[in-house]
């Protein structure tokens, strides 16, 4: 599996691999996200157990006794990208996802670049 062709060192090969990895993430967030199940995830399913969920004018209401009832509204629920929408428009989930990928990449990339820097003159170990 790791013949001479896959020996590390070639910067262009690494750049190509990174570009491919980013493309997969962008496609997942930008396109595949439209195929995602809209049902509540495992944690939400448990949290809503015992309650009836009704939607009035786009606002969810819980009646009964359940864990989620004790949850409070998110402080940024009215934010421009809240709920992976763009300004509340869920048809733009893909765009919100692409933005999220880029923001995460920028934030994580910057942090890891800073952490990985070595003082000048000192060889990397």
């Amino acid at each position: 599996m790791s013949g001479p062709a896959t020996t590390p060192g070639s910067g262009r090969r690494t750049a190509r691999f990174f570009a491919g990895f980013l493309l997969v993430a962008l496609l997942a967030a930008g396109l595949l996200s439209y195929l995602a199940s809209p049902e509540p995830d495992g944690l939400d399913t448990v949290a809503q157990r015992g309650c009836e969920v009704t939607e009035v004018d786009g606002v969810e209401r819980l009646t009964g006794e359940c864990i989620a009832q004790h949850g409070t509204e998110h402080p940024f629920a009215a934010g421009p990208l809240a709920g992976y929408s763009v300004g509340g428009d869920e048809r733009l989930t893909g765009a919100a996802g692409v933005l999220g990928v880029l923001v995460t990449l920028a934030g994580a990339g910057a942090l890891f670049w800073l952490l990985g820097r070595r003082p000048a003159g000192r060889p990397r170990d």
Binding site: F21, V24, A25, S33, A36, E39, G97, F112
Partner: peptide, 20 residues
């Protein structure tokens, strides 16, 4: 090499977490 890889891994996890 591992710093940009880690940034991409974070971005990949963000993307795939959207795929319920």
């Amino acid at each position: 090499r591992t710093a940009p890889m880690a940034g991409l891994v974070a971005a990949f996890v963000f993307a795939v977490q959207m795929l319920n």
